[in-house]
Write a protein that binds this DNA or RNA. Structure first.
Lengths: 215, 215, 215, 215
DNA sequence: CATGAATGAGTTTTCATTCAT
DNA sequence: TATGAATGAAAACTCATTCAT
């Protein structure tokens, strides 16, 4: 039977150089991404993925070894998407101040989309994987480290620039930003109340302004 | 087969007035509690519960209508346990200051046990339920509200006492405490690094000291 | 749905003291026995067993851990059945001579049934398991050893009786009887020609008469 | 992907006159031969064949109609290989005596290789096919007949030569040789004990010497 | 109330085979 | 001819739940 793969309007992953297999693989990942992010690893079945991709079992298993591999790639994709979207709010800004502000700006602008896609993939994967899914746990840990490191580098850039206090621990503040952010997403999402997220964002900004930046 | 229900030394739920049915029900809940908290709703099977309780299907279905009901009761139990343990750190203290301090004291003392039992039940249930399990979502929301409310009351008590600034929004600070705490638990747990939780606890204490309490 | 287990006319395994689970287990084994013996381990599916038993997957998996366990038990059952049938031809006989004769008598009388049930279970399991199924291989080896040992004991009994030559190696002749028998079954079965089996039986009898027995 | 077909040092099937298709066909058969002989028809998947040949589905299905055809050709190949190897032990010998001796000599010398390649292909195919695979059963029957016939001809040659008793039934002894041989292979293989095969070979030699040959 | 055998839809995964390129 | 993506039936096995005893 002829296979028409419906490609989404907003599509990160396809490019003309890709082989057919790579395209299908990317297509599956992209389609499965919000499903895993909403339903979780255990809650998502291969049947769910078949449905959302309009592909058959064979097509999926032809491109992935097993459910773990799909989940793993989906997590990576979700993280990359998140970074990609957030980067848009950070990249044109000059200086550490504006870049840190970009993080909270992103969530202030995009919280609705984030919530609709199932929330923060780092949080979802983290909470499900920590006691359960060792293959995912490692990847989540690496992602946390990466993210913290990238924030740390912005702060350290600010120290070089001279806009950030020299004596503060850049890594510590990076993790604190993530901590407050994740707490805010969790509460905002479960309570259907984005104000709770916004309060967290405000606090991050306030912390940065009063403790990180030179007045 | 003869059924010997081994009752734990430290046991919240049993009391001599209970009927046999109530006892079995409580026993199942207590035993299933850490399993659900670690594996999640979708990841926990009725067979897991049978194993951990040494009971038969009939015994479980005789006491609960279905898996949802077990999950629901287990969530309530886990929250009650959490409150119970936390209260020990809060109850003997006099005044808002000491009681707020009790929350962070609890986690500083008991983080290991919390992690071993699968982390914060509110967080686990929240993250799994928000897009998925409407029956749980409502209960999680109520729990968040209760917890926030109880912290709010402490703060308001502090305002009456005169040790807390009159003009601050007690509810807002209550939610902010939970926000930072949950973020800290999440990061500490996934990174196998309780220092990340401790930094969150420090920040809560600092926030309370510098913003909530009078000098 | 009401479950009517159709019990065969000629039924080894049921007895009134059995629990229901034991009965079902025995029933499954008995029903699956000729299927495995004909189609082999890889060629037999759980669906085949469902069909031949009129039971559901759950009923089968409720009584056996997995397909291996069914196959293993079926092999044991098939061997026990074989011994049982063969014993009928051996037990009333007095002396080693008659008992050894009983083995070949059994096949001369019963070859048709043996062929219809799929041939010699030892041969079937042996040929499929030797390079493949280690769990079965061990059991087949034990069965061969048992069978050879029981023939050996008859021969040794004959030596004690004084009807068998003292100096012959009982074990060696036991294995030789099995060797010729299995070769005969294989050829007779594949060629649809029981005369080939009968020639093997004749040779066994001749060998016993001329080499094992005293004149 | 570039396809480098690694051709074995000792290679029956390739010859320079072959077309490319014929070469690939032969290559597949040769590679798949030990796999089918070890795992059996039902136990061997097309994926196994792909793996062992490093070819794609298309390449295999381009050369064979289906799995049955591969299995069938593989069986023929395995039988031809067996004949080829055995012939080396028989061909230079003069007279029926030496040629019959060649059969047992072959197994005494080569049992290890035979076992490593999965045992006797006739036995393996015979046991799996007899109740199951009618397409294979016919071929196995023909192979048995061929083999028996070739032994019969040696014996008859011996009768013409005058070294074999005139009155014996050549066909009967041919089948008996195969019978004892197959029994010996089966037992030797499953028991990991080539002595059991050797005893069978000894008996064949003894039978030939005492019953077939003129003293 | 408790038992535990049974259900049957659902799970993940593999299979032989097809077919557009 | 060869490729390899895709098919879809079927494989082994699990699951929440029911119900006769």
């Amino acid at each position: 039977m002829k296979q028409n793969i419906p490609i989404g309007i907003f599509c990160y992953t396809f490019d003309p150089v890709m082989s057919k297999a790579e395209k299908t693989r990317s297509y599956i990942i992209e389609r499965a991404a919000p499903v895993f992010n909403k339903k979780g690893y255990a809650g998502t079945s291969m049947a769910d993925i078949m449905e959302v991709t309009n592909l058959t079992k064979g097509a999926i298993y032809g491109n992935f070894e097993n459910k773990d591999e799909v989940a793993s790639e989906v997590f990576q994709f979700n993280m990359k998407s998140l970074y990609g979207r957030m980067k848009i709010f950070m990249q044109d800004k000059h200086g550490a101040v504006a870049q840190l502000q970009g993080i909270t700006d992103y969530y202030r602008t995009s919280w609705k989309g984030v919530f609709e896609r199932g929330g923060c993939p780092l949080q979802n994967a983290s909470v499900e994987a920590d006691d359960n899914l060792s293959f995912l746990k490692k990847e989540v840990q690496a992602s946390v480290r990466n993210w913290a490191r990238s924030i740390e580098l912005i702060i350290k850039g600010g120290q070089t620039e001279g806009v950030v206090h020299k004596q503060i621990d850049a890594s510590e503040y990076a993790y604190m930003i993530i901590t407050i952010l994740e707490g805010g997403i969790m509460l905002g999402k479960i309570m259907n109340n984005h104000a709770l997220l916004f309060k967290a964002l405000d606090r991050i900004d306030y912390m940065v302004k009063t403790e990180v930046l030179k007045n």
